[in-house]
Nucleic acid binder design. Sequence first.
DNA 1: GTCTATAGGACGATAGAC
DNA 2: GTCTATCGTCCTATAGAC
Lengths: 191, 191
Amino acid sequence: MDTRERLIESARELLWEFGYVGTSPKAIQQRSGAGQGSMYHHFRGKPDLALAAITRSADELRDRAEAEFSGPGTPVQRVTTYLRRERDALRGCPVGRLTHDRDVMADPALRRPVEETFAWLRTRLAGVLAEAVAEGELDAALDPAATATALVAVLQGGYVLARAAGDAEVYAQSVDGALGLLAGHVRSTST
Amino acid sequence: MDTRERLIESARELLWEFGYVGTSPKAIQQRSGAGQGSMYHHFRGKPDLALAAITRSADELRDRAEAEFSGPGTPVQRVTTYLRRERDALRGCPVGRLTHDRDVMADPALRRPVEETFAWLRTRLAGVLAEAVAEGELDAALDPAATATALVAVLQGGYVLARAAGDAEVYAQSVDGALGLLAGHVRSTST
DNA sequence: GTCTATAGGACGATAGAC
DNA sequence: GTCTATCGTCCTATAGAC
């Protein structure tokens, strides 16, 4: 793992834990073991390095979700797999948390991956839900787009509530609640 | 409105928009029209002023929710009123956003009002849902506590998604999705 | 490619006059 | 109660040697 790579990975972890404003170039350098000069050799500055880190986190999030959405099982089973996937609840979402970072949202370049990630996620999940409706697995009264947005919101909000409570179990509870609500709309239980 | 009051209100607005880390004492002073000396006369420092501001925002949130939960209508109608209340979606939740602020979560005094607000909110909403189940308005299969947590999460996550999209309509969509999911569990539609 | 030195500014807070 | 002056620290970035 070369210096450039270590800088990106260090930036990713610090951005996840402390946010953009709370992450200083100095902290990234120390964590990666790179010196001041190295960082400014590989990147133009903090925003440039942050863009590389954010883009990578966004790509990872998307790839993992896509694997679950296009995996085995019925549409509802795949959605359940996605929702139930183990997550580091108290750490929160590495992409979603940037939403509360003024400096990120104010910079179009940094904001773009955040915006695109959630736009894709909502659309992709809506597609899987539409499949479920089309196959009769889900109640036709359910609007795929609105339901998808609500489910993604449950995850993002679950992180907020878990952090507020200081208890990862609260995240699990909000997923349980969402699945309980969804269960009432499942028509066929064919395995 | 005296100086102390103006300081608290200015701190509330800045905390809401920029978060704790992003809000400097200097900015609060300028917005409130108070000088450096005034702020340090009325408050011990930034954390002390922030505590007053956060506590007030938390109390306000709680009072508004309580008014809706104990208002007129059936339990499900009251929950719907709460969820549908107009909110400044792109601004987000003044309390929930502090969850992503490291300095707030690291300080037990500042963290307490955040923790207590959501603990109360989830418990109180669970109580209204339990009423609905007891009265037969809601499906008995629904767990009040988990459902309440999921619904609060939809609001908090709705803010995240709306900010990511830069579109308040996304917040409304996640509320629509949640109500659509809840609708499948409503038993009697007695007015 | 990596190092050290240094710049210019903002931060949070304190001192002491009025 | 409010003012101005000042402190020490950290921030992001640049310069220039090696």
